[in-house]
């Protein structure tokens, strides 16, 4: 099996995550889709590390995880704050900043 299959899987998961971000309205689900995209990117990094024969890709994937963790913490805090004031977790309800 060609290791490129991992990359194809990564591309597919990334695109699915993107569709989820664009189509879902529940902020938490949107967030999970973002996580999916990040994970897909990580898979690509890990695969590239293997293809190239060095560990730099894995280090980047590691950093990505750390950043994703930060993002989740802050993002969920924002969702909670919005939910507290608007009683809704729908991203479509927070649409006051518009034309």
């Amino acid at each position: 099996m060609s290791p490129n299959n991992y990359l194809v899987l990564s591309a597919l998961l990334f695109s699915i995550g993107a569709i989820g971000v664009v189509l879902r309205r529940n902020a938490i689900v949107v967030f999970m889709c973002v996580e999916l995209m990040l994970n897909a990117a990580n898979l690509a990094f890990v695969t590239f590390a293997r293809l190239l024969g060095n560990l730099d890709g894995q280090v980047v994937a590691f950093f990505t995880m750390v950043v994703a963790a930060c993002e989740v913490v802050v993002g969920l805090a924002i969702i909670v704050t919005i939910f507290r004031s608007r009683r809704s977790a729908s991203v479509d309800d927070a649409n006051l900043l518009k034309y």
Binding site: V21, V22, V91, D92, N95, L97, K98, Y99
Partner: peptide, 17 residues
């Protein structure tokens, strides 16, 4: 053009995509 600014974050995400 301002109609593009719907306020929906999903629209913006779509545009980014």
């Amino acid at each position: 053009v301002r109609r593009v600014q719907t306020g929906y974050v999903r629209t913006y995400a779509l545009l980014i995509l």
